[in-house]
């Protein structure tokens, strides 16, 4: 698995959700509630970004399971999309 590629995609997703540029490199262990400014709307944007990358809708269970940065990467990897995009 190309971990770097998946990580880049994750960071891009979060950057877009948070609407920030520049340095933003959260660790996999970082929980979503620890990310500054990731309020309700940013979380919605995050899910929409993930769905855009995957070109697929997430289920309610999949959305609930996203509790950390690492979970986003695991979800992307499980669905295989980021590697294909690379």
């Amino acid at each position: 698995m190309n971990t770097d590629m998946a990580e880049d995609t994750v960071i891009e997703i979060l950057r877009n959700a948070l609407q920030v540029d520049g340095d933003f490199a959260p660790s996999d262990a970082m929980r979503l509630e620890e990310i500054p400014n990731l309020d309700s709307m940013a979380r919605v944007r995050m899910v929409l970004e993930i769905e855009r990358v995957l070109d697929d809708r997430l289920s309610m269970e999949e959305i609930i399971a996203i509790e950390s940065v690492g979970h986003i990467r695991e979800l992307l990897a499980a669905k295989g999309k980021p590697l294909a995009e690379g």
Binding site: E33, D39, S40, R43, V44, M46, V47, M60, E61, I63, I64
Partner: peptide, 12 residues
């Protein structure tokens, strides 16, 4: 609840 979030947690 801490907020609406993605909505999924609220429905759950």
């Amino acid at each position: 609840e801490p907020g609406v979030g993605t909505g999924a947690q609220v429905v759950k």
